[in-house]
């Protein structure tokens, strides 16, 4: 029923830092999440894009040195896109996502508690109903496809492009926010 102690300990440490950062970043707050989707607060996008760019360069560097192995989730596009569309509705209704909801439990957030109970039930309903939607979910299967494979470019080129887009967006957002203040 339990994996190795090492893995649980590493998970605990990772989870602790993760939860700490999410709380300090303000993304455990209903208003911050909902106002992102109302385009009034860009904390979520700023945090995620920074994490993706910084994380991406590091992880691909480690992979190049043979120090890390990638784990690419299969591109089952109907499942990915359909799931994403459902997820967006839930994220606005709850004002949290799964990770930030669990971190918000540490804040003794009642909505996070109700949401986490809902997630336990939801995971059960999803697994139980999967057999009936499976053939549809697996309709378009591109395998473990990455953007570098899709565009025939090196990961570093794509990450650099992403970094330029992210930094430009940040500059525009900071200017807009300074004006609005």
């Amino acid at each position: 029923m339990f994996e190795s102690f090492d893995l649980i300990a590493l998970g605990l440490l990772t989870g602790f830092v993760f939860g700490f950062l999410l709380q300090k970043g303000g993304v455990t707050k209903y208003e911050v999440i909902v106002r992102q989707f109302l385009l009034q607060d860009f904390t979520v996008l700023k945090t995620m894009l920074t994490a993706i760019v910084v994380g991406g360069f590091g992880v691909y560097f480690l992979e190049g040195q043979g120090l890390a192995k990638l784990s690419i989730k299969p591109a089952l596009l109907v499942a990915n896109i359909g799931g994403g569309l459902i997820f967006g509705v839930g994220m606005v209704l709850l004002g949290l996502c799964p990770g930030t909801a669990v971190a918000a439990l540490g804040e003794r957030n009642r909505r996070a508690f109700a949401g986490t109970l809902g997630m336990l039930v939801g995971a059960f309903l999803q697994a139980e109903s999967y057999n009936t939607v499976a053939s549809c979910a697996k309709w378009v299967d591109l395998g473990a496809m990455t953007l570098p494979q899709l565009f025939h470019a090196s990961p570093m080129v794509i990450l650099s492009g992403l970094a330029i887009v992210a930094v430009s967006l940040f500059v525009v957002l900071e200017r807009m926010e300074r004006k609005a203040r």
Binding site: G55, I72, G84, F87, G90, P98, G122, Q126, A127, A137
Partner: peptide, 28 residues
């Protein structure tokens, strides 16, 4: 919470597993 996790599990991940970890690996 039910809707949120239904979407995440169908898609194969949430804002962490797909949104951060998957996006940084440039997964389609």
């Amino acid at each position: 919470g039910i809707i949120l996790i239904y979407g995440a599990r169908l898609a194969g991940g949430c804002t962490s597993g797909h949104g951060i970890s998957g996006s940084l690996q440039l997964a389609v």
